[in-house]
Amino acid sequence: MDWSKAKTILIVAFIITNLLLVYVLIGEYHIDEPTLKKEFINEVIELLKEKDIGVATEMPMEIPRLNSMIVEYENVNIQRLNLNYFNNKGIIEQSSEGLSKVVRGGESFLLINNRSIIYENSIDDKIYSDLDEDKAIELAEEFIKKGKFNTDDMKLSFIKEDKGTFYIEYSKIYEDVYVEKAFTNFQIDKRGVKRFERSWLKEKDLADVEIYISTAPKSILALLGMQQVYGKTITDISLCYYFEPEKHDYLEKPTEAKQGKAVPAWRIQFDDGYKIFIDEY
Rank of each mutant, 00 (worst) to 15 (best):
I15W: 00
T17F: 14
L19S: 07
L19C: 08
L20Q: 09
L21I: 13
V22F: 10
V22M: 08
Y23L: 13
L25K: 11
L25A: 14
L25V: 15
G27H: 06
Y29K: 12
I31R: 10
I31A: 09
D32L: 14
D32I: 08
E33C: 11
L36R: 10
K37P: 01
K37A: 02
K38L: 04
E39Y: 06
F40Y: 15
I41M: 00
I41L: 01
N42H: 06
N42Q: 10
N42D: 13
E43M: 15
E43K: 15
E43R: 15
V44L: 02
I45V: 14
L47S: 15
L48E: 08
L48Q: 06
E50I: 10
D52Y: 10
I53Q: 03
A56N: 15
E58Q: 09
E58I: 04
E58S: 09
P60M: 07
M61R: 09
E62G: 05
I63P: 04
P64K: 02
M69K: 07
M69C: 10
I70L: 12
I70F: 09
V71D: 05
E72S: 12
E72R: 11
E74L: 10
V76D: 04
N77Q: 01
N77F: 04
I78G: 03
I78N: 03
I78S: 05
N84A: 07
N84I: 07
Y85I: 05
F86I: 05
N87P: 07
N87V: 12
G90K: 03
G90H: 02
